[in-house]
Design a protein around this nucleic acid. Structure first.
Length: 499
RNA sequence: GGUCGGUUGGCCGAGUGGUUAGGCAGAGGUCUGCAAAACCUCGUACAGCGGUUCGACUCCGCUACCGACCUCCA
């Protein structure tokens, strides 16, 4: 198994990945809160971790991938004013059952993941399905003296926790002194909390609150951060390998998650924390609450003032892959157009490659070595903290070689038949298995018929050309072009591609 | 205000103490009946100012600008 390096947010460094159990990986990624439609920024995160998941599997790890659905506990607005559960609020406004809201947006989320070719996780647990476990964890934390109850709500005691373990703020770089220093000014707004940085792990439900469960402290609902602690522990164990999420979840969500796990289990839950960076729009974080976002359907259809036209889901996925997951990615129409061209070039190269057959005679020379080096480089790139843009660069260099082989600038005689087979498999695996791309152009079910018809048409055009009947051959080409089919004349006959 | 991160050629976007990222766009050429596609060649970019060094885009410091988090957010 190749040595994999992962950038660990906890240490801020790249580290060699060593799983808890040899050959197995426990991967937890924070899923969406399903109170409205996913926007494109959300999607980027899930695409990033989809590649992580895919590559871990490709390396031969047996991965258990858990990605939750948060369907309760996520509060609206700041903690000082009247807080309300996001889903509960939406349900109240739309006069629907909270679970109808959850179902609607969860369905939409799944559909979008499918469209973007994001693999489903192995387990997709929901917060509302784990109320009992959450109550258990609250009790465990209380039992360890790291939480306190006030008027039916239970708060995590961050000050005590910081004193006992000294790790509160370790992930997000916050200091205990700062937290304590803040206390004087802000205490007035937090009458139930001992300290402003304390956070609710169980919340007593107001009378109008729709989502409520019985607990030893009150009829209420669990705090936002609790479900991730509970469900990751339940399905991946008290200590597991990788926890991922958007960088905006670092604080407070992940910091509090760590605190809860210490509070209940007495030790750190996760060995490697991974944080994906934000998708930007107009140079700013894409965010629905800021009104700065594009919804995936708008992007696909092009019905947004920022876009000159629509872009297919796979172009969008490719666009995301062209940037490292830890860098911000700025969405612009121009960048999408460039991505679309690049995506086509890559897929075309893949098609050309898979059509190659080797005559059988060939010698291992410079070309053979170059191809093997580029393949090795692509894997090395992925093993270096999932560097998809760099791996793509290696693949594009291979595309040039592939096209040169096709055009005759390079000769099959300079590579071994085995190398060609290896290249075919590697290229295919990278594009479809690791990067999770799909061939957008060839997704029609009647492809076989189309291929047959196209072969016939191109054959007729070839005959016309042989007779120097240019009007006929050009007419065929022009009509096809009007149907978005491009004819490309090559050394050995013509090929075609859509659009 | 605090913490962290970024500033790369026309655009997007990797990376490295001295050697080609890659994609898109652009220029020239090859091929072609023409075109498209493809191939070849080309731009010598790393915010500014200092410092370390034989040598820095890459390390250190300062300045400027941008962003993220600190409040719900992938």
């Amino acid at each position: 198994m190749k040595e994999l390096q992962i950038h660990n947010s906890l240490t801020g460094k790249k580290e060699v990945f060593k799983p808890v159990n040899e050959g197995h990986v426990g991967l937890y990624v924070c899923g969406p809160t399903v109170y409205s439609d996913v926007h494109l920024g959300n999607c980027r995160s899930f695409v990033s971790f989809d590649v992580v998941y895919r590559y871990l599997m490709y390396l031969g790890y047996k991965v258990r991938y858990v990605r939750n659905i948060t369907d309760v506990g996520h509060l609206e607005g700041d903690a000082d004013s009247g807080e309300e559960d996001k889903i509960s609020k939406r349900a109240r406004l739309e006069q629907l059952e909270p679970m109808e809201i959850v179902q609607r947006y969860m369905n939409g989320f799944h559909e979008m993941m499918h469209i973007l070719n994001v693999l489903p996780p192995n387990i997709e647990p929901r917060a509302t399905g784990h109320i009992l476990e959450q109550i258990d964890m609250v009790q465990a934390i209380l039992g360890n003296g790291l939480a306190y109850e006030k008027n039916g709500s239970v708060y995590f005691d961050t000050v005590k926790f910081a004193e006992k373990y000294g790790v509160y703020g370790a992930l997000s770089g916050r200091k205990i002194e700062d937290l304590i220093a803040e206390s004087r000014d802000n205490l007035k707004n937090q009458e139930e909390k001992n300290h402003p940085s304390d956070f609710a792990i169980w919340i007593k439900a107001a009378p109008e609150h729709l989502m409520r469960w019985k607990s030893p402290w009150s009829v209420g609902f669990p705090g936002w951060h609790l479900e991730c602690s509970v469900m990751s522990t339940k399905y991946l164990g008290e200590t597991f390998d990788i926890h991922g999420g958007g960088s905006d979840l670092k604080f407070p969500h992940h910091e509090n998650e760590i605190a809860q796990n210490y509070g209940a289990c007495g030790h750190s839950p996760v060995n490697y924390w991974m944080h994906g960076n934000m998708l930007l729009l107009n140079g700013r974080k894409m965010s629905k609450s800021e009104g700065n976002s594009i919804m995936p359907p708008e992007l696909f259809l092009g019905n947004n003032p920022l876009l000159s036209r629509g872009y297919s889901p796979m172009v969008v996925r490719f666009f995301m892959l062209q940037t490292h997951y830890r860098s911000t990615l700025d969405l612009t129409d121009e960048a999408l157009q460039a991505a679309e061209k690049g995506y086509r070039r890559l897929m075309e190269g893949q098609k050309v490659l898979q059509g190659f057959t080797h005559s059988g005679e060939g010698q291992a020379g410079q070309l053979d070595k170059e191809i093997n080096d580029l393949m090795g480089q692509a894997f090395a790139d992925m093993c270096d903290d999932f560097n998809t843009p760099k791996a793509l660069a290696s693949l594009f260099e291979l595309v040039t070689i592939i096209n040169s082989l096709k055009g005759g600038q390079l000769s099959f005689n300079d590579l071994l038949p085995g190398t060609l087979e290896h290249l075919k498999k590697t290229f295919h695996d990278f594009i479809f298995e690791i990067f999770g791309l799909r061939d957008d152009a060839g997704d029609s079910s009647g492809r076989g018929v189309v291929d047959g018809l196209m072969n016939l048409i191109l054959d007729m055009r070839q005959k016309a050309r042989a007779n120097k009947d240019w009007p006929t051959s050009d007419k065929i080409r022009d009509v096809l072009k009007s149907l978005d089919i491009i004819v490309k004349d090559g050394k050995d006959g013509a090929t075609w591609s859509k659009e």
